[in-house]
Amino acid sequence: MNEDERSLLTAAITSGVRAPMDAIERLGNNRTFHIMAAAMSIAIERGFADGTTPAQIQNYVEDLLERFPKADGEIKASALEAVIRAGLGEPELIEPLTYDDLLGASYLLTFDLISQQELDDAGREEYFQTVIALADEES
């Protein structure tokens, strides 16, 4: 994991840190998207147990958009629900989503689900390493 990847992931899970635009520029859209897709995929796996029902996911998304009012209107509730359900075994649900939908969902869900875990330094490092290993599958 290089420093740019580390600063992207740190910004994604830390409150009050501005987006590391220089790092994102150096990484490029492809690599940034892969890292954020991996970060969200693991966050969803950790945040939602098998068998979570669509109704529970709907409640979570409703609550999420209330807690992040800036996201309401920018990121569609249906896109967030589709991504979470895709992570629980319905991958086809993300077919109609745009990259904007996926990217918006990846930042919001990663921040929310991982910050709820209150990881210590070792836990954060382990999460970063797991994310990068998954992102490396496609890069």
């Binding site: 991996a38 995929s41 796996e45 629980l88 992102a135 496609e138």
Partner: peptide, 8 residues
């Protein structure tokens, strides 16, 4: 699950 979502 995370691999499947990421790959998709």
């Amino acid at each position: 699950r995370s691999q499947n979502l990421f790959r998709t």
